[in-house]
Amino acid sequence: MPPIDDSTRPRVAGSVELTPRQRQAGDHLRMVHDHFRAQLRQLTGAVEELRDGAGDVGVVRDSLHRLAPALTAQQVSGLCQQVCRFLTMHHTIEDQSMFPAVATMAAYAPVATRLAEEHLDIHAHLERVDDLALAVRTDPSRVAELVTAVADLREDLESHFTYEETEMTEPLGLLGLGI
């Protein structure tokens, strides 16, 4: 699956000046995405450490927010499923509520359409990660494929989040939409 092409994305951000109150929805969107970014970092570390066979017993967590490096294949699979579920829920809410509202504004409609299309690409990544996470439970030799799939997901998702945060702040603020 080729990475999302940033050069083909419609751009409209910067066309209006928002008040601090109008910027709140965009700031909230960024905070939600930051939560997903943290989960992706955690997932990336977990699959890489599983691949590397790092410390399989007696390893403790560095902090409350960091997974122990010695996760089993079953635990990594569960983490993959959790990330996939929550991200799918987040994108479904955007597709059903936020993007249709933004699409009512002619200038921002191409952005809303593009973001909804990118959700399909992200979903394909999620399915690949989920399939491989399940496969690794019974065939640990496939962990390198899982590491690659997570890296591909993370690259496209980071790009998608940044684009969405940049381009959706204005229409969310102008429409007075919360997220």
Rank of each mutant, 00 (worst) to 15 (best):
V76M: 05
A109Q: 11
S97E: 13
D52S: 04
R66F: 07
E94R: 02
E94D: 13
A116Y: 00
P69M: 09
Q39K: 10
L29A: 01
A46L: 06
Q39C: 10
G53D: 15
G53T: 01
L64Q: 14
L43Y: 08
Q81S: 15
D121K: 04
V102I: 10
Q39D: 12
R30N: 07
V76C: 06
F36G: 02
R85L: 15
D121T: 15
H28R: 12
A70Q: 13
S77E: 11
E49R: 08
G78W: 01
A116W: 01
T44G: 13
P100S: 06
A38R: 14
A103C: 10
A116K: 01
L115M: 04
D27S: 11
Q74D: 12
T104M: 14
D27H: 02
L79W: 15
L50W: 02
R114N: 07
L43C: 06
D121C: 03
A116I: 02
A46F: 06
H28N: 13
A70L: 09
E48S: 10
L120P: 01
P100A: 09
L40I: 08
F86V: 10
P69S: 09
F36N: 11
E118P: 00
V32I: 15
Q82F: 15
H91E: 15
R51W: 04
Q82R: 14
S97C: 06
G26H: 00
E48P: 01
R51F: 05
A112S: 03
M98P: 02
V76A: 03
H33W: 01
Q74Y: 04
G78H: 08
H35Y: 15
L115W: 00
H65F: 13
V32M: 14
P100T: 08
L50D: 04
L40S: 01
H28E: 15
L79Q: 14
D52K: 04
D56I: 10
V76N: 02
T72C: 08
R114V: 02
G45N: 09
T72A: 11
R41Y: 13
R114D: 07
Q96E: 14
E94K: 00
A101M: 09
H91M: 09
H91F: 07
C80Y: 05
T104W: 08
Q42V: 05
V76I: 09
A106N: 07
T113R: 00
R37C: 09
F99I: 03
Q96C: 07
